[in-house]
Design a protein around this nucleic acid. Structure first.
Lengths: 348, 348
DNA sequence: AAAGGGCACGAAACCGTTTTCGTGTTAATA
DNA sequence: TATTAACACGAAAACGGTTTCGTGCCCTTT
């Protein structure tokens, strides 16, 4: 006895009034007499009337959906951001459609096209690695031209004019390195990925600047560049065996954790012999042995911020050709000190 | 110069034909002459015509969206399942709308109602803790009555007739305990959460059965029940200080990792003095020290299976009053052996 | 030459709302 | 009593498609 959802027309027929009357009555329009209103509302309640979202969307060209396109969902940072987005959006009555680009340019394009034809009111995205590598942002510009608001977070590019939410990567890396220097370390290694990721480049920049500011020469042999999320044990092993350093800054959590394991395996004490700091304060940092000092990115805050910017654009008019109407919000990272570093000197 | 998306009507006006002709031409209907078809198609391509998804949804009462309601998104297992759902659904041309219930009954209800009015073609859900605690499934039944297909995974209930995807929790727990027993352990502790979660209850059942099958008496003092995701260090500490055991089975990863840390803190060697096995094979299991033997739940497979079942129901007629039309798929868990357990005796 | 049959296209209904613009009735005003 | 305003409601268009059912025209057939 599957009772299909009841429509305005059904109510109108049953109560022998017109659909327009029903529609108005349900919105409590005082164009309709008190009597009729109450009768219609009672009937609607009785039969559990719920307006059809699709029809409403078609009518007012607003779906109350926002599209989120991210490179990966099984990833602590992205899910944290997503939580922030979802919470804020839900509070504003929006639903969230997620598409995963899997770090692939093509999937990113396809996903955006699927959604850009009426399914959503705006996009929140982090660019896939491949997209950043190719530097092809035509699909983003096209969406912008259609008048669909777009907010980029974390994995952003300067080549597309839109709202952005980033962390102060360069500064955060600097501060992390300075923290190491203050605790007496001088030979500081960097573990990063092949640098087509904008964020990695920024972090490396901060790393170099901190060294320079403290008169420590940059040594390229102390930089280990690993393929993205590829378990290249051999490269790392060699690095830890042949290079001498007393601290490590890693652009992500995994590389740091794997580094710590290798270092311990080779008999180093952490943090006495080698200190470690990683970016992305996830589960691993909190539960590793030793626990990992890390740069917290406040993903939930980023997500909420991105959603706020997007919904602002969706609900209010703006001139999308005016670069001045776009904001870039910086969510400041903070260093969470744990066992993998020595405390800095007091008074700093 | 925001050029809005072009519509059938625009094309029709420009080419001086009717909308129906345009519609048919674009679908390559041979009701339309070759000439006209080509002209219209060329024009459409030139102006980058894309049909409006919302209009299509309204017309054929199919949104090609599926709704996923899960208790938490910053959670390795759920995101893994989600990835499976997303991949399969995307392959079939579906988009996925995610709502997070935050383990709250009310949010679960509200989210479902938001989506049930035309936004989606079907639901995939894992029940919130609070919903299971209350045992109130009216919102699920209501959705089913509306003819909206529903698939439950992992956090399921027998009280709602629908498709389900579960793991063989009881059996997997049994096998884990047997693995411990085979490696010579006899006093096996269980760390679980307050058992209104169906899965936890099942795992405890398997734990008990394994003990019984091997003639080991069940000892209630060896069961530690922790509040859900609540960092109750004191309870755990007491447990590890006052009870004597040589192995631990934990219903999740976190409890196991925290247990290992406590045990090591008290001078126990792992796995020689105490072995550990945890459920949910996530990041922590792979990177902890020692690495944690764990029961892998194959989340991605579960997700794909759930999506397959759902889309099957969405696209084909079925009798929702016939219990025989519902399937329960069991995805078998597998034990991943790592450093936290001794290998079982050979030949087993 | 009349009948029949394709062919190529258009009109219109429909999906479920919202919203504008009448319009008939009643009550208040001049 | 005639005018007008307020009131309560309905008709119809609109959102952007799909689909059914005509229908006019031309060509073939008897």
């Amino acid at each position: 006895m599957m009772r299909k959802n009841i429509t305005l027309k059904d109510i109108a027929r049953e109560l022998e009034v017109s659909v327009s009357t029903v529609s108005k009555a349900l919105k409590n329009s005082n164009e309709i007499s008190r009597d009729t209103r109450e009768k219609i509302q009672a009937f609607a309640r009785l039969y559990n009337y719920k307006p059809n979202n699709i029809a409403i969307s078609l009518k007012n060209k607003r779906t109350k959906n926002i599209g989120v396109v991210i490179p990966d969902i099984v990833h602590h940072f992205f899910t944290t951001v997503f939580r922030g987005i979802e919470k804020y959006a839900n509070g504003k009555g929006y639903n969230v459609i997620v598409c995963v680009s899997d770090e692939s340019f093509d999937k990113e394009v396809i996903n955006m096209e699927m959604l850009a034809n009426g399914s959503i009111d705006g996009f929140i995205m982090a660019l896939s690695a491949e997209t950043q590598l190719r530097g092809d942002y035509a699909h983003l510009r096209q969406v912008a031209e259609q008048g669909i608001p777009l907010v980029l977070f974390d994995r952003v590019t300067e080549e597309v004019p839109c709202d952005k939410v980033v962390i102060n990567d360069e500064e955060a890396a600097m501060q992390a390195v300075e923290h190491l220097i203050r605790s007496g370390k001088r030979r500081i290694a960097l573990i990063t990925n092949e640098s087509y990721l904008h964020v990695s480049a920024m972090r490396e920049k901060g790393y170099r600047r901190a060294l320079k500011d403290h008169g420590i020469p940059f040594d390229d042999t102390l930089v280990l560049r690993l393929p993205y999320q590829f378990e290249e044990e051999e490269l790392s092993r060699q690095f830890f065996e042949t290079r001498k350093f007393d601290a490590v800054l890693s652009v992500n959590e995994i590389f740091a954790i794997r580094g710590m394991r290798l270092a311990r395996g080779q008999g180093y004490r952490i943090p006495e012999d080698i200190s470690f700091i990683g970016f992305t304060d996830g589960m691993l940092s909190r539960y590793s042995i030793p626990t990992l000092t890390s740069v917290a990115q406040h993903g939930e805050e980023m997500g909420a911020c991105a959603a706020r910017l997007l919904i602002g654009k969706v609900e209010h008019e703006y001139d999308e050709t005016d670069p001045g109407s776009y904001r870039t919000e910086v969510i400041r990272a903070s260093l969470i000190e744990r066992e993998s570093t020595l405390p800095g000197l007091p008074g700093s």
